[in-house]
Structures are given as C-alpha cells and as structure tokens.
C-alpha cells in the first residue's frame, strides 16, 4: 500500500521549518501550486495567497525564520485519493520572542502525482494575534449585531 502524499508532505514541511532542510519539500510542491494561509497579512507577512512553487517556498522559509514546531496533533483527518483535510493543534515557539504559541488549524490539501497542487489553511487568527501580542484585544461585545 502506497503512503498517502499528505504524510510525505507533512514530514518534509516540518523538517523544512524546524531544521531548515528545504530539499525534500521542494520536490513535493507542484510548479503551479495554489496556496493560501488566511489571516492578517499586515501583522504576519507570510500569510495570504501565493501562486507558484517559488512563492510557496519563500513562505515556508519565512515560517522557518519565525517559528519552531514543538508539537502537533491531528485531531481529525480525512484522506481521499489525492486530497486530504485535517484539523490540527500546533504548539509553536516564536523565535524572536521565544514565546509559546498554540494554534488550531484546518488544512485542505490537493495533490497530483505526489506533488502539492493546492493548500488552503484556516487558523483561529484572532487567538493567534492575541498570543503574538501577549495580551487580550479589548473590543465591544456584539450582543445584537454579530
């Protein structure tokens, strides 16, 4: 039984972020990949949409510059033939401040011939921003309009 492309990609991604070893991940990304990590790009320039392998590799390098993955747990996972969806909990360390950051992430990936062709990632970004700031953001309660 052949290993699903997600597992190879996941291992290579974490090796790229933690060990700055980019050769494996480079071989697993399609030239025309579509990539989107949704979130506030003014605070986190590596978030946002990217098109093409070089742009995605640049994002992965920026992730490696900013974070170390301490731990991740897949809370839910669904595998199709060339697709995968998972909900993960990541424990990261922000390298500039050495602060721990805990994130819930939803990841939808598509592969072709073993290479990533599409990746969409949703993050609880309000929580991410508060953790990065190290304090709560004070906003009015939405009791009637939200």
């Amino acid at each position: 039984m052949t290993e699903h492309s997600l597992w190879r990609f996941s291992r290579a991604l974490h090796r790229a972020i933690n060990d700055r070893h980019f050769e494996d991940i480079e071989a697993l990304i399609d030239e025309d990949v579509e990539w989107a990590l949704y979130g506030p790009i003014d605070m986190f320039p590596f978030l946002g949409a990217r098109q093409g392998k070089d742009a995605v590799l640049d994002v992965i390098r920026q992730l490696a510059d900013n974070f170390q993955v301490r731990r991740f747990d897949r809370e839910s996972i669904m595998l199709g033939v060339d697709t995968a969806a998972s909900m993960l909990r990541y424990s990261l360390t922000a390298l500039d401040s050495n602060k721990p950051i805990s994130l819930r992430v939803a990841q939808f990936a598509q592969f072709r011939a073993g290479k990533l062709t599409s990746m969409r990632v949703l993050i609880d970004t309000f929580d991410l921003v508060e953790q990065a700031l190290g304090r709560a953001i004070h906003l009015p309660k939405m009791t009637s309009v939200g």
Binding site: E75, T125, F126, L139
Partner: peptide, 11 residues
Amino acid sequence: IREIIDSYDLV
C-alpha cells in the same frame, strides 16, 4: 461539529 474560521477577519 467543529469549526475553524479566520476569526480576526470575521470580527
């Protein structure tokens, strides 16, 4: 049911 939203943008 478990949801994840780009909550910063939503707010």
